[in-house]
Computed example of a mutant assay.
Amino acid sequence: MSQESDAVREAIEGELRLMDPGVRGSRSLARQLLDPEFTEVGASGRRWTYDEMLAAMPEMDGAAESGPRYEPSEFTGVLLAPGLVHLTYETTLDGRRARRSSLWRKRGTATTWQMYYHQATPLPSESV
């Protein structure tokens, strides 16, 4: 595999881990995947900081083992620069669809990629 495909694959693996209820419900596991400078613009339009997201994630949709889970599809990714990957994909959660974009970065001697930025845009149910 090329360096680009390895980086994209690792970022997608991180993205999928963040959708896992076991990770969403654990601040310590989520902390490993979120960059300390993380920000998000959620599907609601709300801006989230690193601390706000870590505090709220265990109560958010997709965090309960017995509840609805994210169903991701159509992942694409590109290595924008060394240590910076851009992902786009769609999710369905409990019938609600969203287009998503995230930036993952790996700094210095870090061994794992961390989500630096995320944005979700809701899709109308009739949208393709």
Score class of each variant (00 low, 15 high):
2 S>C: 03
3 Q>S: 15
3 Q>L: 15
5 S>V: 13
6 D>F: 15
9 R>F: 02
10 E>K: 14
10 E>T: 11
11 A>T: 07
11 A>E: 04
12 I>W: 03
12 I>K: 08
13 E>I: 09
16 L>A: 07
20 D>L: 10
20 D>H: 14
22 G>C: 05
22 G>V: 05
23 V>G: 00
24 R>K: 02
25 G>S: 09
25 G>H: 03
28 S>K: 09
29 L>I: 05
29 L>R: 09
30 A>V: 11
32 Q>A: 13
32 Q>L: 09
32 Q>P: 12
35 D>C: 08
36 P>F: 04
39 T>W: 10
39 T>Q: 11
40 E>T: 13
40 E>S: 11
42 G>E: 07
43 A>R: 13
44 S>K: 12
44 S>A: 10
44 S>W: 06
45 G>M: 01
46 R>F: 08
47 R>A: 12
47 R>T: 11
49 T>K: 05
50 Y>A: 08
54 L>C: 05
55 A>S: 15
57 M>H: 11
59 E>L: 12
60 M>A: 10
63 A>Y: 00
63 A>H: 00
65 E>P: 00
65 E>N: 00
66 S>E: 10
72 P>H: 03
72 P>I: 01
72 P>C: 01
74 E>P: 12
74 E>D: 13
79 L>G: 04
81 A>C: 06
82 P>D: 04
83 G>E: 08
84 L>A: 06
90 E>Q: 14
90 E>A: 14
91 T>I: 07
91 T>G: 02
91 T>H: 03
91 T>M: 03
92 T>F: 06
93 L>S: 05
93 L>Y: 07
93 L>E: 07
93 L>W: 05
95 G>W: 01
95 G>H: 06
96 R>F: 11
97 R>D: 00
100 R>D: 02
100 R>G: 08
100 R>M: 05
102 S>K: 06
102 S>N: 07
103 L>N: 03
104 W>M: 01
104 W>Y: 01
105 R>E: 04
106 K>H: 09
108 G>R: 11
108 G>F: 04
109 T>W: 07
112 T>I: 14
114 Q>S: 10
115 M>E: 12
115 M>P: 14
117 Y>H: 12
117 Y>L: 13
118 H>M: 07
118 H>N: 08
119 Q>I: 02
119 Q>H: 03
120 A>R: 10
122 P>M: 03
123 L>A: 10
124 P>F: 14
127 S>W: 10
